[in-house]
């Protein structure tokens, strides 16, 4: 509610921009959560889908002009390419140990980064290029609402997805791969499917991201983008979706503030160190993240009062986060 009213209250454009960014990164982080939190797959190349979505929009706007039709087409193309890419990487490595997927995604995203740097006629290399966006989207408030609506829709969509039979199989894979396999499920297909869903969603967030900047360069393919998704998901809490949204907010706010603080001491330019250390501690001590930990506490509290029933069924997932089985 507050978020809907906000644009009419505040005049601060930069604040509005930041919230827009948060919504977009929340979509990106949620897509990552489908992999890590719900299926137990670790990807170190998630930026590649983000980048594919980003460049699809950038290149299309640049070449075909800024029309709504071509924008929608560009977003669609990004999603299709991402789906293909995730299918290929998934089929190559998801039937092997979890290390392979992590290595392969890392290598593929590295390849795409080099490709974006070298294919100068289309991407303008490292420098990137600015482009026009359709008239309608030039307005910051409109963009804010688009991002907000998409975030909510993606949240609802993914939540539905994880409650479908397919989604339940994925969670079973995360909990105990061998057992799920022995129940007769062809695990690879489910894992590949999860990676495709995650890839498509990440591509959408990449498309939105460059729309807000009206600019695209190779940073969309950089390791930093993947790290963003990782930090947001881990610190917010894996396997909750909401955690991804909260994680995105925390990281973006902190990024802004700590960058401000850099005026006073240069150590704050290295804000990522704090998050790196926090991230390590969270992985070691609270594998369920902030939301996950709070949820399992809440769940215990609810369990203590058995007359309460849980209509949503969502909280059952978070409980098992603390003892995630190894996925190998």
């Amino acid at each position: 509610m507050v978020l809907i009213g906000l644009p009419f209250v505040t005049d601060s454009r930069s604040f509005l921009m930041m919230l827009t960014q948060i919504f977009i990164f929340a979509v990106f982080a949620m897509s990552y959560d489908i992999l890590l939190g719900y299926t137990g797959i670790v990807s170190f190349g998630h930026c590649m889908f983000f980048g594919v979505g980003a460049y699809s929009v950038g290149v299309m706007m640049n070449e075909k002009g800024a029309a709504i039709g071509s924008l929608l087409l560009a977003i669609l193309i990004g999603m299709v390419l991402s789906a293909l890419l995730s299918y290929i990487v998934g089929m190559l490595s998801l039937r092997l140990k979890s290390h392979f997927y992590a290595m392969l995604t890392l290598a593929f995203s590295g390849l795409l980064l080099v490709l974006a740097e070298k294919w100068r006629s289309v991407t303008h290399g490292n420098d990137g290029f600015t482009f026009q966006v359709p008239e309608l989207i030039k307005d910051r408030t409109v963009l804010y609402f688009i991002a907000l609506v998409i975030m909510v829709l993606v949240y609802l969509g993914l939540r539905r997805f994880i409650h479908t039979p397919v989604g339940r199989v994925l969670q079973a894979v995360r909990e105990n791969e061998q057992r799920t396999e022995s129940l007769g499920f062809e695990i690879v297909h489910y894992k590949v499917l999860a990676s495709i869903v995650a890839g498509i969603t990440a591509s959408l967030s990449g498309s939105l991201y460059v729309l807000t900047l009206r600019f695209v360069n190779t940073t969309v393919f950089s390791m930093d983008m993947t790290l963003n998704a990782l930090l947001m998901t881990i610190i917010g809490g894996v396997g909750t979706l909401i955690g991804a949204i909260i994680g995105a907010s925390i990281i973006e706010f902190a990024h802004h503030w700590l960058t401000e603080l850099a005026k006073f001491h240069p150590i704050f330019e290295r804000w990522i160190i704090f998050f790196g250390l926090l991230y390590i501690l969270v992985v070691l001590l609270f594998p369920a993240g902030i939301v996950g930990t709070l949820r399992s506490k809440w769940h215990k509290y609810r369990k203590a009062r058995p007359q309460d029933t849980d209509p949503s069924g969502v909280s059952t997932e978070s409980e098992s986060q603390g003892k995630k089985v190894n996925v190998s």
Binding site: L36, G40, V42, F44, K97, S98, H99, A102, L230, I234, G276, Y279, I280, V283, L284, P287, K324, N326, V327, S328
Partner: peptide, 11 residues
Amino acid sequence: NHVQQILVTLG
């Protein structure tokens, strides 16, 4: 725990 290992070493 492979998932945790992979995540933590990247950190």
